[in-house]
Design a protein around this nucleic acid. Sequence first.
RNA 1: GGCCCCAUCGUCUAGCCAGGCCUAGGACACCAGGUUUUCAUCCUGGCGACAGGGGUUCAAAUCCCCUUGGGGUCACCA
Length: 490
Amino acid sequence: MVQNIRVRFAPSPTGKLHIGGARTALFNWAYARGRGGKFVLRIEDTDPERSTFENEVAILQGLRGLGLDWDEGPDVGGPHAPYHQKDRIARHKELAQVLLEKGWAYRCFCTRERLEVLNQELTAKKERLAYDRRCRGLAASEVEARVAQGEPFVLRFAVPDGKTAFKDLVRGDVVFGNEEVEDWVMVRSDGNPTYNFVVVCDDIDMGITHVFRGEEHLVNTPKQVLLYKAFDSAQPEFGHLPLMLGTDKKKLSKRTGDTALQDYIDRGFPREAIINFLCLQGWALDGATDIFSLEQFVEKFDIKDVSKAGAVFDIDKFMWLAGEYIRTGTVESLADASLPFVVRKGLATADELKARREWYLAVVAGVKERVRTYAELADQIAYLFVDDEKLTYDEAAEKGAKKHERRVEILRTFLDWLRPQIAHGVQPEPLRNAAKQWVADNNLEMPALFQPLRCALTGQAGGPDLFDTMAWLSSARTLRRIELGIERLA
RNA sequence: GGCCCCAUCGUCUAGCCAGGCCUAGGACACCAGGUUUUCAUCCUGGCGACAGGGGUUCAAAUCCCCUUGGGGUCACCA
């Protein structure tokens, strides 16, 4: 049994943090936290072309935003610093040299052009695409001469004969025939080592004991296992998480929905809901509980319980979960969390909302059980902020209002009755009772008044209690909107 | 196409490893009804799956094999 568990998450700052990457981070983190291990964050920035510092900062923020923390990492340091792969390159080169000397690697002078031709030939013959090892048997003298002449070369790993097996904590034992593993490039012609090489160097140097990552890395594993052998180093335990799938059942891509963690944050999903939903992709607490905390997750999570099959990302369930968290949270927290969304939508400034805190809290309380995300909240209360004259009526709202033949007459007489009632402000409770009595006194059905009224006031077909709405709108705007409604619904 | 992985309701999954307790449980979605001034919430009910075929066994969703289907991967990206 491994004593000191050390896991890592190693994102590449070549783009935004993928939602699947967020789940990988979450599972790694939970595994470490659940058994007193260490969680290491390492930045895989060996692709100088596409890696950016902005991406890195965003990834770190995203992870922290989810509530994850790391014991060692680029911003917190640690005993195995540095935590940027590009800063470890001297060490990588040193290790590559070791493998070269031990015969585990060899120089390959084949040009990209030749490789291109080779691939075409292989494709034509319908054979497996792989390097043909032409440079593997080069005489030492020839290699020396070509190096001396300044001929560019890459370092390839010399894959031995045999089979490569490893234990996968999610899938069981996996075996690859080594003939399926090509002599892959360890070090590029520009001297920069490649992913499969550095990842193992760093995992060894950092004492990583468990490697949990997405299933797309499963086929890389034999290359890496061979590297552990070449370095005469103990193999870590592996665990390949099932892929997160789009509705087309293929690896989640932008084609079928948002793929970045940030996309969902921007769409106003509560962070607890994001975490909770991610946990449910490939794992279940007990088969009956869908809603649980990060703490419960840490307590119960085990890599062995992760399912093997891919998980389709079901946005409907995600939305439901988000709404569940919003409904069970407090009005205050919802007000705070939704405020930036209201501001971003251009409805009001943060200062304005803070100045009207009580009012905003009342509004939020009114829509709390009707929204699933912060963005939806902003959408639903937008009508409160627009000019009375510019209020637009939803199709459904207008249709519902116009269903009632006597709408204009009813609205008129109601307006006359209402005017003195709210002359000194709106008191929802007594007003509601009085209005219901008014409806009864006039021998009307409730909807005959309320549907046109709701349309005039909000432009929406549904929503919170109308008398609360009047209070949020204030007397003047309430009266004005009814006047406008009488004209517009005629 | 080669190799690798996977296979329970439309979706997420429990059950499988240690075969009987499974006439397969929960959740989302959907449908119907109730509550409500509307919408939403909430409550009640309904629909709905062990991919197929062989074995092994007294007994298989659970173990084995095959087929079929789906996915991943085949870079001097990570």
